[in-house]
């Protein structure tokens, strides 16, 4: 690990009077793997969603490439560098390949480059045999793998995975854990919110405990 890829500073988030995140500082080392644990409702998902710019915070800033940005001014371009994968990923009602290509299309990548990247991502996630299957017919594990491919294809600086193995059967869980292990070889910083002991125990994983609004 070297340097800080992205850092959250002074993040505060509350729902009504309930403070979920209380002045959180979270420096994420480039290429590092982190797992955020905590009780249900402790704010793990909220933390990831704030980091991805999908949820507003009352205060706080995001530091990227030495530049500090107020979270309130989260730029669209950052969403291509910090990608969030939902616990129950939504796959668009189009082909698997088009789902994987979505972010590249949004980024305006050239077609040839896009197709090459998508082919690589399909191979990486091992979903080549699913290309003719409608997304709504995929199992939970298969959807999660397609969603991982869709996120990884963007070569994000930070990949945020929210409970990626929750509610999966043994086979699906095994396949997703294998993919997450493969992410160690990628350059991305990976942050996983979960309770999964297997994920927590993966080699090189740094554990962060979220407890009563504080990271410990």
């Amino acid at each position: 690990m070297s340097g800080v890829a992205v850092a959250l500073n002074g993040v505060r988030k509350s729902f009504g009077k309930r403070v979920v995140l209380d002045d959180i500082d979270l420096p994420l080392a480039a290429g590092g793997s982190f797992v955020v644990t905590g009780d249900n409702g402790s704010g793990k998902t909220t933390l990831l969603r704030i980091l991805a710019g999908l949820e507003p915070a009352q205060s706080g800033s995001l530091q990227v490439d030495g530049v500090s940005l107020a979270l309130a001014d989260y730029p669209d371009s950052m969403r291509r560098r910090i990608v969030y994968v939902h616990q129950h990923p939504y796959l668009f009602h189009t082909s698997i390949a088009d789902n994987i290509a979505y972010g590249l299309n949004a980024r305006g990548d050239a077609r040839a480059h896009r197709e090459h990247q998508v082919r690589e991502a399909i191979g990486w996630a091992g979903v080549g045999h699913l290309l003719q299957v409608r997304p709504d017919k995929l199992s939970g594990g298969e959807k999660q793998r397609v969603a991982l491919a869709r996120a990884k294809v963007l070569n994000p600086t930070v990949l945020l995975l929210d409970e990626p193995t929750a509610n999966l059967d043994a086979e699906g869980r095994h396949q997703v854990v294998t993919l997450i292990e493969k992410l160690h070889d990628a350059e991305a910083t990976v942050v996983i919110a979960c309770h999964d002991k297997e994920l927590i125990g993966l080699p090189g994983m740094h554990r962060l405990q979220l407890d009563r609004g504080k990271l410990r």
Binding site: A52, R79, R80, H86, Y90, F92, Y102, G103, A106
Partner: peptide, 26 residues
């Protein structure tokens, strides 16, 4: 519409306009 549609599109780097269009397509 599933609330994850817009959010997924935004989370993959789509601007508001593209994410809105994606929602309409969905």
């Amino acid at each position: 519409a599933d609330p994850r549609v817009f959010e997924t599109a935004r989370g993959l780097g789509a601007g508001r306009l593209r994410a809105s269009w994606t929602t309409l397509v969905e």
